[in-house]
Amino acid sequence: MMWILLAVSPGTAHAADAKRKVIIDDEGFALMHLMLLESSEVDVVGITTVSGNTWANRATAMVLRGLEIAHRPDVPVVQGATYPLLNSEALTDRWEALYGKLTWKGAWMKQWVEPTAQSTPAYYGPDDPVNLPDGNPALKPAPEIAANFLIRMVHKYPGQITIVACGPLTNLALAQRLDPQFASLVGELVYMGGSLNPQQVLDNLQASQFAREFANSPRREFNARFDPEAASIVSHSPWRKLTVVPVDPSTATQRTPGLLRQMAKAAPPDVAAFISRLEPGFPLWDEIAAGYVLDPGMVTNEEDLYVDFDTQFGASYGDMLSWREHYQPGLGEQKAHVIRAIDPRRLEAVMVEAMAQGARRPR
C-alpha cells in the first residue's frame, strides 16, 4: 500500500535552525524513538529510561543498542528509576488476589492469563544481568540520575524542551519533588498514559485481545497503574502545557506488517533491518505521542480536562480521573489537553516520512 506523503508535510512550520528540543522518557526502544531520532523536525537532546514494560537497566541497554543502530551516539542516555514510588510486585500480587487479574503487568509479568497472539515476555529481576538477543551495546549511559538530568536540561533550556513520556511517570515525579520549578520550566509535556472510555475499533483478533485491557475497566491503563502516585504528582505539577494521550485513540491504530514494510522501505539500512524484526499487531500507543509532536494536525478530536489518578489502594487503584471545567475538586490538579482521536492514516504517513528523513540524513 502506498501512502501519499506530500499532503501531510509534518512540522513544516519549524525552521531548520529552530528545531524543537525533545527529551524522550520511556521504558525501552521502538518505533516511537526512531520517529523522533530520524525526523529532521526535532532535536533529541537526551533519552531517560524508567522501569515499566521492563526494568530500567534493561531499558537502558535497549536504548543504547537502538542508538547504535540509528547511528546516534551523540544522544545521551540516562538511567532512571528502577522502582515505582510506592507500588511493588508484591503489592500488585496482593491487589490481584483481592480484585482480579491485570491483563498486563510489565516487568512483573510472568505469563498471560489466557491465550494471546502476542509472544510471552521473558521474566527478569531488577538486578539480573542484561544480555540482549542481538548483543549488548558498546555505548554506555551517562553517569547521572535521570531526574537530575531532566532538571539540569530544563534549567539550561527554559521553556524550550518538550518531554515525550511513554512509560510510567516516576522520573518526572521525582524531578518535580526535587525541584519545584521543574514542571514550570518544561515547554510541553506530552505523555502516553491513562484511559477514558476506549472502544474497540478494528475488527481483528489482535484488536479484540487488546480490548481485554479496557472492556471491563475503561479507566485503567498500564503506565499509570504501574506507578499511580507518580502519575498523580505529575497531574498536580504546574506545566506550561500538558498534553495527554490516553489509550482511547490507539484503538483505531495497529502496527501492521504492511506499515512495518513501508517504514523499512523508507528507512536507512540498519534502521530498516531493526524495523523488519519487530513483532506486528500492537496498537500504536507511543507512536501517537511522537506523531502528535511531529504533526499536531493529525488530531481529530481533543478536549481540555482536569486529570488525576486514583492513589487509594482499592479496586480502582491507578485509574484515571477526569473532570470538565467547574467540576474538578480544585486540589491542584492541572488542566490537560487530552487527545481523544486521531487520523490513523495521517499518523502512518508521519511515521514513514520520519524514516525517509532519516535516510536523507548524513550518517
Rank of each mutant, 00 (worst) to 15 (best):
A142P: 00
R219G: 01
D128R: 07
M355I: 07
P121W: 08
L172V: 06
T251V: 10
P137F: 03
L150W: 03
Y327Q: 14
V44R: 05
P143Q: 11
L169E: 00
A13E: 15
E96M: 15
G291A: 10
V8P: 00
G135E: 06
E221T: 04
N148D: 15
F182H: 08
G52A: 14
N136C: 08
R219S: 13
P141E: 07
A70T: 07
W323S: 04
E279W: 04
A356C: 01
G106I: 03
P198R: 01
M192D: 01
F29D: 02
P76S: 10
Q199Y: 06
P238A: 12
A252W: 02
Y191C: 12
E114I: 05
R212M: 05
T48M: 04
I288P: 00
W239S: 00
R72D: 09
A138C: 04
M263T: 02
V352K: 05
W104V: 11
Y123T: 13
A264C: 09
K265Y: 09
G106P: 05
Y327R: 13
V245F: 02
E68M: 07
F274S: 04
F274C: 02
D248N: 12
E96I: 06
P10K: 09
D26T: 13
G318W: 03
M62A: 14
A13R: 09
A18E: 14
R212P: 00
T49E: 06
D25T: 10
L139W: 06
D248P: 05
A13G: 12
L64S: 08
H326A: 11
D227S: 10
M109F: 09
G314P: 03
V338Y: 02
D270A: 14
L172N: 03
T116S: 14
I23C: 09
S232D: 14
Q206N: 12
L242P: 00
F309W: 12
P158T: 12
I23G: 05
R346C: 03
I339S: 04
Q254Y: 03
G297I: 02
R255Q: 15
Q176E: 13
G106D: 05
R152E: 13
N57R: 15
F214E: 00
D203N: 15
E325H: 10
L5D: 06
S40C: 05
L5K: 11
A70I: 07
L6M: 08
N131C: 04
I342F: 09
H14Q: 13
L196I: 15
H33E: 15
V245S: 01
E213K: 07
G106E: 07
G330D: 09
T82W: 00
A356Q: 14
P246Y: 08
S322F: 15
L36Y: 04
K241F: 02
I151D: 03
L278D: 05
Y124M: 06
S88G: 09
A290G: 15
T170Y: 06
G80A: 08
E68A: 06
P73E: 12
T311Y: 03
R177Q: 15
G281Y: 08
T82D: 04
G194V: 09
D227R: 04
D343Y: 06
P143C: 09
I275C: 04
Y191T: 07
P73M: 13
Q334E: 12
A90D: 14
E41N: 11
A356R: 15
R225T: 11
T54D: 10
H337E: 03
A341D: 14
A117V: 13
